[in-house]
Structure formats: C-alpha cells, structure tokens
C-alpha cells in the first residue's frame, strides 16, 4: 500500500548478489583452478602496480596528500549518501487529502482524510470482534485510497469482519456522495494469538 519502490529494492539486492557471486567465484577459482590462477598471477601485479602508481602520481606538490585517495573518499561518500536515501525512502505514502475538487470557478472543495478516517474508525471501534483497527489514507498513483485494517480476535470469521467494515464504508459513501477506493485488511498477528478466543456462536 505504501509507495516503496519495490523494483529498486530487488535490483539492489540482485546487483549485490551478482557481485558477491562473481567475487566468490573468482576467489575459489584463483585458489583451486589453474586456468583461473595463471592469468590472475600474470596480471594482478601489473594492475596493482598501475593502481599504486596512479595514487602516487596524485601527490600534491610539497605535501604528502594524494588527491587520488580524496577522490576515493568522495566516491565512498556519494555511495553512502545514496544508500541512506534509499533506506529512508522505504515506506511512506500517507496522504492528508481525500478529495480535492474545483467545485466552482472561484473556489475549491477539499475534504481532509481525517473526515473519512474518523468516521469509519468510530463506526467500527465498538465492535468486540476486533482487537484493534486502524484507518489511514494512502496515495496510490494519484488516487486517494482508504485503508481499513482490523485485527480480529481468534476464531472470528473473516467474512463477518469484512461485512462489518463494508457496512461502514457504505455509510461513508452516503455521507460523501461518492465511493472512495478502499482496502480492507483483515489480520491476526501477535495480539490475536495472546487474546482469548471468541466463543462459538
């Protein structure tokens, strides 16, 4: 429901996975397969010499500072910042506006998400089948969507839970004069497991 970019998640994991596989295969090859070891031994020293040579050549005159290392540090800093942004980007997508409409040439009508949220919340709050309930609004591709998530007591029929929530959504439709897309999420979870079971009716 949130707007985490899942493709990016998977791409990052896959790219790092491929790098690990490649490095792992190279290490195993170098240590145990002659066909891999020989070209490595042949070239590694030269590459090493070239890299260290380049680092030495970046020494700033009359100091011992090599700007090559500073360059490496800069690259590291950029990568770290990108990764932190990536982590911080997870989740999100809550939205405060339910409906915004140009009702007349001179004004706009805005209905706040909290109107729908508290209306539905209050309606389902007293229900003893639910251990917890939560109503929130998300923005999914430019559309405001209500999310009603309820935690059922153990043994409660999900059908009756959905019916209860649906009923209050229908009431909201009548109130607003339109249907807001809605997700009903029925979950169990830890609280349901420790709470007493419902009596059979």
């Amino acid at each position: 429901m949130n707007n985490t970019n899942r493709v990016v998640n998977r791409v990052l994991v896959a790219v790092i996975g491929v790098i690990f596989l490649a490095v792992g295969a190279a290490l195993v090859g170098i240590a145990s397969i002659g066909a891999v070891r020989d070209p490595y031994v042949e070239n590694a020293r030269d590459v090493h010499g070239a890299v260290t040579g380049w680092l030495k050549s970046t020494t700033v005159a009359q100091t011992s500072i090599q700007w090559g290392w500073i360059l490496v540090l800069a690259v590291i800093a950029v990568l770290v910042i990108l990764l932190i942004v990536f982590v911080a980007r997870q989740g999100h997508g809550h939205h405060g506006t339910l409906i915004r409409e140009e009702t007349s040439p001179t004004g706009t009508t805005v209905i706040d998400s909290s109107v729908a949220e508290s209306a539905v919340q209050q309606d389902i709050d007293g229900n003893t089948d639910f251990l917890a309930s939560r109503v929130s609004t998300y923005r999914v591709r430019g559309v405001s969507v209500l999310k009603v998530s309820v935690t059922c007591r153990r043994g409660v029929s999900p059908r009756s839970a959905v019916t209860v929530v649906q009923h209050s959504l229908t009431g909201l439709d009548a109130l607003l004069g339109r249907e807001i897309p809605a997700l009903i999420q029925v979950s169990g979870g830890f609280r349901a497991r420790v709470a007493p079971r419902t009596r059979t009716r």
Binding site: L146, C152, R154, G155, V156, S157, P158, A161, V162, V165, Q166, L169, T170, D173, E179, P181, A182, L183, I184, Q185, V186, S187, G188, G189, A192, R197, T198, T200
Partner: peptide, 19 residues
C-alpha cells in the same frame, strides 16, 4: 467484496476454520 478490496491473513482464515 461488493465494495472495495479485501485481503485476509491466512492466520485469520485458519483460526475461523478451526473454530
């Protein structure tokens, strides 16, 4: 559902069936 979209945890289905 008639209205909206409903998603149910398997755990809830299982405990209702068990009861």
């Amino acid at each position: 559902t008639e209205r909206g979209l409903a998603v149910v945890d398997d755990e809830v289905i299982a405990s209702a069936l068990a009861r």
